[in-house]
Simulated scan of single mutants.
Amino acid sequence: MDWQRCYVGLDALLEAGNTLEDVQPGVTYRGDDIGRWAARQTRDWAQLNTEQRRRLEELGVRPQAAVRAQKLPARGAAKAGAGKGTEAFKRGVEALRQYIAREGTTVVGRQHAEELPDGTSVRLGVFLSNHKSRRDRLSEDQLAALAGLGLEWAA
């Protein structure tokens, strides 16, 4: 039942215009971390049954080895700023902007989830922690967006 619910969530996120690249751990749908679930499916592909694999492949999900092979050539270009303005990052910035407007601070608890007006939920604490620890991989535009919201570590 959990698998089916998460599958429906992934399908809904994709139908809403997101790409698989946008659905990273921390992206939720109706309370389920669909990004984490999707990553687990690609990692544990061999443990899935034939029908689960077929359904995931229809959505464009592939086993982890295939995902890595597709991403490797793009990583060098990504550091230069190409393709790094993902929808997931934009949602995270929108959620942070909303949080700051309401709370007046950039201090966010790790478990805090921010609900956006479109109904999606962003695990804001996780978003900030992940981006702070990976700031060396962010584009200049992404760092500028975060610094513009008052995050000193992004300046």
Rank of each mutant, 00 (worst) to 15 (best):
W3K: 12
Q4D: 15
Y7V: 06
V8Y: 08
L10A: 15
D11E: 09
L13M: 07
L14K: 00
A16T: 14
G17N: 03
N18A: 08
T19P: 02
G26I: 03
T28V: 09
R30Y: 07
R30H: 11
G31E: 11
D32G: 02
D33Q: 10
W37P: 10
A38H: 13
D44Q: 13
D44P: 01
A46T: 13
Q47M: 14
T50Q: 06
L56R: 02
L59M: 06
V61N: 07
P63W: 08
Q64A: 15
A66Y: 09
A66R: 09
A66I: 00
V67T: 11
A69V: 03
A74I: 00
R75N: 08
G76T: 06
A77K: 13
A78M: 11
G83A: 00
G83F: 05
G85M: 10
T86K: 03
K90L: 07
G92C: 01
Q98L: 12
R102I: 11
E103H: 15
G104C: 02
V108C: 09
G109W: 04
R110S: 04
A113T: 15
E114F: 00
G119T: 06
G119M: 05
G119V: 05
T120S: 10
V122G: 03
R123N: 09
R123H: 11
G125I: 07
F127D: 07
F127I: 05
N130W: 15
N130T: 14
K132C: 12
R134M: 02
L138A: 14
E140F: 01
Q142M: 13
L143C: 13
A144Q: 14
A145P: 01
L146P: 08
L146M: 15
L151T: 07
E152V: 14
E152T: 11
E152C: 08
